[in-house]
């Protein structure tokens, strides 16, 4: 409900900046790993895990999903989870094509 003019509450932004610093730190870490570590499956796994961390903070805090009802959270998460299956299936397929060609 609108408040009366002149009665604007003080901003409450500490949590926003906290989330921002977490995401910045993860990005800086990814950037550092890209140069310190040679390319390998382990490095790629680290990148993917850190990306999922970042995605968690953006979706849960910035998009406020953490504070929605459980039903809505699952409605969004379950179809996204199925996409991991698609990704794994098609990368396997890509490897199969690679082996057939080379």
């Amino acid at each position: 409900m609108p408040v009366h003019p002149g009665e604007i509450p003080k901003p409450n932004t500490a949590w926003i900046w906290k989330t921002f610093w977490i995401i910045t730190a993860i990005t800086a870490l990814e950037f550092a790993i890209a140069f310190v570590m040679p390319s390998s499956t382990l490095r790629n796994s680290i990148f993917i895990i850190l990306t999922i961390f970042k995605a968690f903070f953006i979706v849960a805090e910035f998009m406020h999903l953490k504070h929605e009802t459980k039903g809505l959270i699952w409605t969004i998460l379950i179809p996204m989870g199925l996409l991991i299956w698609l990704l794994v299936a098609l990368i396997t397929e890509g490897n199969a094509i690679h082996e057939a060609i080379f």
Binding site: L87, L90, I91, E93, G94, I97, H98, I101, F102
Partner: peptide, 11 residues
């Protein structure tokens, strides 16, 4: 996902 597939398809 297409990127993943095609990248794995190449050397």
């Amino acid at each position: 996902t297409t990127y993943g597939l095609i990248r794995h398809r190449y050397q």
